[in-house]
Every structure is written in C-alpha cells, then in structure tokens.
Computed example of a mutant assay.
Amino acid sequence: MAASALIVGVGLGVGGSAAANAARARAAADEQSQVLTTAVEDCGHPEGMAVGDSGQSLSIDGEGDEEFSGASLTAISCVLNELDVPDYVVSQIESTRALDGTLSASWSGLDATWNYHPDSGLSLDIHFDENDNN
C-alpha cells in the first residue's frame, strides 16, 4: 500500500511538473510572438513592414530609387535596433550589393534573409528559428 501511494505521489509530481513545463513553454511562445510585433510598434508601424505567421515572421520591403513606397532606412534601422541585431549582421545588410544575391544570417533564435537592388531597395525577412529550443 505504501508503495502504491509512493508511485501515485511520484506520478502526480511528474504530471504536475510536465504541466508546469508546458505552461512555461506556452508563456515563452506567447512572449516570443510579441517580439517582432513590439519592434514594429515601437518604431511607429512604418510603411513597408508586415508581421506575419502569428508574430513569428517580419517582412520588410524597403524604399528604392524607382520604388518610392516602402520602409525608409531610418525605419529599418529602428527595427533592427529594437531587435538587438548584432552589429556584424547590420554591417552585412548595409554592405549588400545587387550582385550578392540573397544573403542570410542567424542570431539569438532569429533567422534573416535579405537582398538588395538600388531600384527596388532592401527586401528583408526575419523569422524565429524553428529549430531553436530556447
């Protein structure tokens, strides 16, 4: 009888722990889904930026020489700053040429791909790494 009480007690402890872990995982996912949205909001909802996939991705369409609508360089810089994008990634984005094609980088659970053409401007997509287990 004592053994079955111990087994039931351990079973409840494990179940309770699993439920607590699941609740923490849900809370972390909810917090994660707000990061990109908050960055865009904090920069004043710039034109040319769209948060998608329930807050898991951000698409930025920058202004170009022949495409006057889109996110300004100031707005893009603001969002990158809000997301704490490392300086080396910002430097890579800033130095991209049309001939470079599509480039990518990863940091802190985020992945980014971008390309640039002077006529159409910067096209930058940022999303959470599906394989990151933070």
Rank of each mutant, 00 (worst) to 15 (best):
W114F: 10
N134D: 15
A20H: 07
L110T: 00
E47Q: 11
D84P: 05
S59D: 13
V89Y: 05
E130H: 11
F128T: 05
S104L: 03
D30L: 14
H117W: 06
F128K: 01
L12E: 04
V79F: 05
L122P: 03
I7D: 06
A19P: 09
S33N: 11
E63K: 15
H45A: 09
G62S: 04
H117C: 03
S108E: 14
E67N: 06
G16Q: 08
S104D: 07
D30N: 14
P86R: 01
D129T: 14
I126Y: 06
V14M: 03
A2Y: 08
N131H: 14
L110E: 01
N115E: 10
M1I: 08
N134K: 01
L99P: 00
L124Y: 02
G13R: 12
S106R: 11
D65N: 12
A112E: 02
F68A: 02
D111A: 07
G52A: 15
G70W: 07
V35F: 06
G62W: 04
D65C: 00
W114N: 04
Q32C: 02
T38H: 13
N115K: 04
C43T: 00
S120E: 15
I60M: 07
A3F: 11
H117P: 03
N81I: 01
A18M: 12
G55M: 09
A5Y: 12
L83I: 04
G44P: 05
L124W: 09
S120G: 05
G109D: 11
E94C: 02
E47W: 07
A23N: 10
A28P: 07
D53F: 09
S123I: 09
E66R: 06
A71W: 05
V14C: 03
S120R: 09
T37E: 11
A22S: 13
G55H: 11
D125R: 14
N131V: 08
E63V: 14
G70K: 05
E130D: 15
W107D: 05
L122N: 00
E130S: 15
